[in-house]
């Protein structure tokens, strides 16, 4: 397998139901995404964006096809491991529409939850969490509860949480949906910077066409399959700003 590939999918299909209720959502989708790329995933509502994201994220089982995450094949018409949750924990970071931080845990505990699940010792987990909070300029908020932070700050914590386990892939489901234009641009630029600096592949579902110029490529779902639109606009904007 070619080095630098973060995700490779071959002819993945997903259908639901049987007989009269049979629906095919994704049909023969094949694509390759490289480390360091920020990909925008667009499709009309009900077009299969979430289903595709869930299949890449080892949550939803495809009906058929093959998936590789990094150099490891994880799906070949069935999951090749019983521990898909472990794959998510170790290789994938998730960012959601809202921050969805755990409201009864403070910021640092929210960030150390996943390393704890990975049996990382508390000291190392906290050091990594603090490093990320510093990177996102919210180091002084580590003891605060999510309810005490602004929407933008919480979304930065959510991005930090997605990065805390040093994943190879980040799946972001409309991460800017709850933010205003300026904050949305800031978050997308931040994601681009993270993709480049940490060699992470990021797939970002978005409905906001204003965010597309900041992405490397646009992946569309058309006629139930994926196609790419090459995109070069503002490719270096992250570093020039």
């Amino acid at each position: 397998m070619e080095e630098g590939i973060a995700i490779r999918a071959e002819n993945i299909c997903k259908s639901f139901g049987e007989g009269d209720s049979y629906i095919e959502v994704i049909k023969n989708a094949s694509f390759t995404i490289h480390k360091g790329e920020l990909i925008a995933l667009i499709a009309p509502s009900g077009g299969g964006k979430t289903t595709l994201l869930m299949m890449i994220g080892c949550v939803e089982e495809p009906s058929s096809g093959k998936i590789w995450l990094g150099d490891k094949q994880v799906f070949a018409d069935k999951w090749l491991t019983r521990e898909t949750r472990k794959i998510r924990r170790e290789k994938i970071g998730f960012i959601f529409q809202a921050h969805y931080l755990i409201p009864f845990l403070n910021i640092i505990d929210n960030l150390t939850l996943l390393p704890q699940a990975n049996k990382t010792d508390d000291k190392t987990a906290r050091a990594k969490a603090r490093e990320l909070l510093k990177y996102f300029d919210i180091a002084e908020k580590e003891k605060a509860m999510p309810s005490q932070l602004s929407g933008g700050q919480n979304q930065r914590v959510a991005i930090a949480r997605a990065l805390v386990n040093e994943p190879q892939i980040i799946l972001a489901d409309e991460p800017t949906a709850a933010l205003d234009m300026q904050r949305s641009v800031d978050v997308v630029k931040m994601l681009k910077q993270i993709a480049l600096e940490q060699k992470v592949a990021i797939i970002m579902v978005t409905h906001d066409e204003r965010m597309l110029p900041y992405c490397d490529r646009i992946m569309k779902i058309e006629d139930k399959t994926t196609i790419f639109e090459e995109q070069q606009l503002q490719k270096n904007s992250t570093h020039s700003d």
Binding site: G57, V59, R85, K86, I87, R88, R89, E90, I92, F94, F96, Y100, I102, P103, L113, L114, Q116, A117
Partner: peptide
Amino acid sequence: MKEISIMKLMGIPNSM
């Protein structure tokens, strides 16, 4: 339930 689904999605084991 939303937070629990998120924890499970992130890969947090049931035991935790």
